[in-house]
Computed example of a mutant assay.
Amino acid sequence: MPLYVRDETVNDLATQAQRLLKTKTKTEAIRIALERVVHRDTPPETLQERLKVFQDRFRALGEPVENFDEKAYLDEMWGNE
């Protein structure tokens, strides 16, 4: 859907944004500017939501191996017998 700018001030601002953002068109400059505003004003995720991502990844690793000898594993990995 086309966007028509009929306000000369808005047109001037779009031209300035195009120059500052070094875009080929004013439309691209407006898109970038609007994306920045939307991203900036979108409320951040809560700490609980961010932690859930890590918790889900951790659970996906599976159950821990019982009696795992980390030192022996690292020695073997480094070639220390």
Rank of each mutant, 00 (worst) to 15 (best):
M1P: 04
M1D: 03
P2W: 09
L3T: 08
L3F: 14
L3Y: 08
Y4C: 03
R6V: 14
R6G: 15
D7N: 15
D7Q: 06
D7H: 03
E8D: 11
E8S: 14
T9V: 12
V10A: 14
N11A: 15
D12F: 07
D12T: 08
D12N: 08
D12E: 13
L13G: 00
L13C: 06
A14K: 04
A14S: 11
T15N: 07
T15C: 06
A17V: 02
A17L: 15
A17W: 15
R19Y: 12
R19I: 09
R19W: 06
L20P: 00
L21F: 13
K22E: 10
K22F: 03
K22P: 00
T23I: 01
T23F: 05
T25F: 15
T25D: 07
K26N: 07
E28A: 12
A29I: 02
A29V: 02
I30A: 09
I30Y: 05
I30P: 00
R31C: 01
I32V: 14
A33Q: 01
A33G: 00
E35W: 02
V37M: 06
V38C: 00
V38R: 05
V38E: 10
R40V: 01
R40I: 03
P43D: 09
P43N: 10
P44C: 01
E45H: 14
E49L: 01
L51E: 10
K52I: 10
K52Y: 11
F54D: 03
F54W: 10
Q55F: 09
D56E: 15
R57I: 07
F58H: 10
A60G: 08
L61V: 06
L61W: 04
G62D: 12
E63W: 01
P64L: 13
P64E: 07
P64G: 07
V65N: 03
V65T: 11
E66K: 15
E66F: 08
E66N: 10
E66W: 06
N67K: 13
N67Q: 12
F68K: 13
F68D: 08
F68V: 02
F68T: 00
D69Y: 04
D69P: 01
E70I: 08
E70Y: 12
K71D: 12
Y73F: 12
M77C: 04
W78I: 10
W78S: 11
G79K: 02
N80H: 05
E81H: 06
